[in-house]
């Protein structure tokens, strides 16, 4: 085998998933619309008092991000499972976990990055101060890849099931709790004008941990789901 064949497979797979996403634009737009919509429902539900909104804003934005990610998760493997391409990945001569990273990266670029881009707008809508919005951006940048990585394990476990969606949320949401706590709290703390280095290092630690373990767990789960 030539030594560049794995990087080549990685980039081709990444390019493939991005091409497919561009040909189905709804996959990019739906979670994004959902994110904006859910966030803008809260002022209607709890009242538009600026102080209240500023207090709950970070939590709202992060919960909405969690749900938007959950909504898009099945896209990582579902269609590949249905048309049989997922089998071909398991039978490739490359480590499956590396292919998984390519797929998760593509998923993040398609669904996580747009959330990141639109989030300052939502921060402004909820009346967050400028410093807090910057921290919100940083937490989303570090945190949304964690959502995709952890979610991939859940999708891999449920991809063969007819009603995988309900179970998926039960499997994945509890695992999102630490991230939610650290990230929403970071934005809160920043809004109060306090330093958030500790929060950010904890979120980075979560990112490193999920980046190193989740691809292996996902690959193992895919083998099981397809057997």
């Amino acid at each position: 085998m030539t030594s560049d064949s794995l990087p080549r497979a990685f980039t081709l797979l990444l390019k493939r998933d991005l091409t497919l996403a561009v040909r189905h634009r709804a996959e990019i737009l739906n979670p994004l619309l959902f994110f904006v919509l859910v966030t803008s429902l809260f002022p209607l539900g709890i009242g538009a008092d600026p102080k209240l909104l500023q207090a709950v804003g970070p939590g709202i934005i992060w919960v909405a991000a969690l749900l938007a990610a959950l909504l898009s998760l099945e896209g990582i493997f579902r269609s590949d499972f249905e048309d049989g391409t997922l089998e071909q990945f398991l039978l490739s001569s490359h480590p499956v976990s590396v292919l998984v990273i390519a797929k998760v990266l593509a998923h993040w670029l398609i669904t996580g990055l747009p959330l990141l881009v639109i989030s300052p707008l939502l921060g402004v809508l909820l009346g967050l101060p400028g410093d807090a919005i910057i921290i919100l951006l940083i937490t989303l940048a570090l945190g949304t890849p964690v959502l995709s990585l952890i979610g991939a394990v859940g999708v891999a476990l449920t991809v063969g099931l007819r009603k995988g969606g309900m179970i998926l949320s039960l499997l994945v949401l509890p695992l999102y709790v630490p991230l939610l706590i650290f990230a929403a709290n970071a934005v809160d703390t920043a809004a109060a004008g306090l330093p958030v280095t500790a929060h950010l290092s904890l979120i980075s630690a979560l990112l490193v941990l999920s980046l190193s373990l989740s691809p292996l767990a996902t690959a193992a789960a895919l083998r099981i789901s397809l057997s």
Partner: peptide, 10 residues
């Protein structure tokens, strides 16, 4: 396999 293993949108 039984399923073609090709992407219809490619």
């Amino acid at each position: 396999g039984h399923r073609d293993g090709i992407k219809l949108d490619l």
